[in-house]
Design a protein around this nucleic acid. Structure first.
Lengths: 337, 337
DNA sequence: CCCGGATCGGTAATCGATTGCCGAGAACCG
DNA sequence: CGGTTCTCGGCAATCGATTACCGATCCGGG
């Protein structure tokens, strides 16, 4: 078996209480005792058993995080920041992938709660159906929702202003001369997708009654983007295709290009998120950048504040997205090289 | 506070031992008692405290995993499979990102061990420097190394045959008429990169003394790919550029294309891994597919076997990669559409 | 009818830490 | 110098489960 606090106590000739105090510093101990405890602990290679400590202190130093799908790079980008930020206060991340399924999500959250996580970061996979689980979780530990807010929730939240993001894109596209638009996105079952969708509808309605040339709603995958490329080709291309996520846009772009369509000269294409690969496509993808690093950091900050009970009312941190203009919307008038 | 086993016992009018037995089924209890325990447990919404259970049973039901960088999609693809496979035996994944740093890696592994993980899955970030930490970890819990094997390690391992992978690529490129090659990869500080590198050297030497037109070694990022594109352009392009990872290849491809180079007619480009984005570039990327799903699943299987102590000797599972031919090496003779 | 063994519920020890409380001695104060 | 307060080590309770062990009951066989 591993070295326990008892072994250290015996070796140093003191009680376990003294060892605990000497090592944690939560109460002063005489310098020479502290020294011999430290030595004994060092010599024996003592590592406190975190499980035992957690049981006693009712705090595990872990934070659970549930994301819809780890293979969508948007989420890992946030996770990366979260992980780093947590590590700086010696907390450990328990990461779960809900695989886009409400049922799995529920199971994972339940499992995390059973493990006594100190807090939970959730990117819910469904606005309505995820709600009961999230609310239940929020009843027992602090929960910060990221990117999406489930229906009827009043908890902490970190995300970006999707309304602004869509507006930036549409203005940019109109500047480029586009007057008909298609929207390719996921079913607006989560708040972020819904806001983008509504913004699209409103904005195109503002332009003209006929500005919207279709709304294709599937999911946040490049396969869906590919499929929509085919559909759009069959139906006739609008001036611009706006995608609800870079992943979709990249799939669409790939299929359009393969079919011989020239982007941006034949059609303008935009994404959303600004994942790393958005700058690797050919043409590179114009998109709206969500500050994923900042989202992650801010989420942990909010959670931390909550854990230290420094805040009372629910906090919403809505960050500002920025437009990133690249080749996929380069001036149609001047087809590149 | 939450409902404890004592509350359930009191509600059902039995002892905690009976509750534990009725719920776990580890020893039979009289049917009517079992029923009332179940009811009471249900009614009160009892959730066993996993921390307490872990302390008592000396098993946490958690598996730690350390990967070099979550933002390289190759790793999430494996993580995804691991996570799913673990969930099926009710184990929880503790994921850590070592950020490509041996020091961080060491800290994370130490933290995971302190949390009493039942086992560890490690994708080490350095062949030599990571070795002591990995070996130390292996001394206290079962460890399965993935993709790379640290120096002097004799533990369990799951990966693919990089020698075969490289050979497939080179043969393919030679079929396409290439006779000069450049290799763009990460510093061969990990075993997988080293094997690919050695295979490249050997294979080009076989072709002719002058077949290798340079070896550019940096890291597994698309920025590195971009930079190498510039260098190769300055030095003059070989017939084919082989990249040690898709991420590198995509960066390279993007920069080459931006510079007006035509792939595959001017130069052939290959990647390695077959991450999802390899099929989204323009042209799509020829690469070697590593069965990431299978790697993940197999790793968990190995770990599971080890946890149930069904195996004695160290196991190595070397999976076979497959060649995936796409546009970036389409026949140079017949420039596409 | 008695005895051995099986069945099953309960008591209490246990996992390994933290911490409330007590008391011995030191320090301080008037 | 006596009394009050402080300091600090140790004992033992505690966190919430599991489980070794004990003893009561029941059953079947001889």
């Amino acid at each position: 078996m591993a070295v326990t606090i008892r072994d250290v106590a015996a070796a140093a000739g003191v009680s376990t209480a003294t060892v605990s105090r000497a090592l944690s510093g939560r109460r002063p101990v005489a310098p020479q005792l502290a020294k011999s405890v430290l030595e004994a602990s060092e010599r024996l290679g003592y590592r406190p058993n975190v499980v035992a400590r957690s049981l006693r202190t009712q705090s595990t130093g872990t934070v659970g995080m549930v994301i819809p799908r780890i293979s969508n790079p948007f989420f890992p980008a946030i996770v990366e920041a979260v992980e780093r930020e947590l590590a700086s206060d010696d907390r450990q991340l328990l990461l779960c992938d809900s695989q886009g399924s409400v049922a799995t999500e529920g199971k994972r959250i339940t499992a995390l709660l059973a493990r006594q996580v100190d807090g939970l970061l959730v990117i819910a996979c469904e606005g309505t159906a995820s709600s009961p689980t999230v609310q239940r979780a929020a009843a027992s530990v602090p929960v910060v929702q990221i990117d999406r807010l489930v229906d009827g929730s009043s908890g902490d939240y970190v995300g970006t202003d999707n309304e602004v993001g869509m507006r930036l894109l549409i203005e940019h596209l109109r500047d480029k001369g586009a007057s008909t638009f298609a929207f390719v996105s996921a079913e607006p079952t989560v708040s972020s997708a819904r806001v983008r969708f509504d913004a699209f509808r409103r904005a195109t309605a503002d332009v003209s009654p006929a500005a919207s040339r279709g709304e294709l709603l599937g999911d946040f995958t490049y396969e869906w983007g590919r499929e929509c490329a085919d559909r759009l080709l069959a139906d006739g291309l609008p001036d611009a295709v706006m995608c609800g996520a870079d992943l979709i846009a990249l799939g669409l772009l790939s299929s359009l290009t393969a079919a011989g369509v020239r982007v941006p000269s034949d059609v303008l294409v935009t994404g959303y998120d600004d994942i790393g690969f958005a700058s690797l496509s050919n043409p590179q993808l114009t998109t709206v950048r969500q500050p994923m690093e900042e989202i992650g950091v801010e989420s942990v900050r909010l959670l931390r504040a909550r854990l230290e009970s420094r805040v009372a009312s629910p906090q919403h941190r809505v960050l500002l997205p920025t437009l990133v203009v690249r080749g996929s919307t380069a001036s149609a008038a001047t087809p590149s090289t």
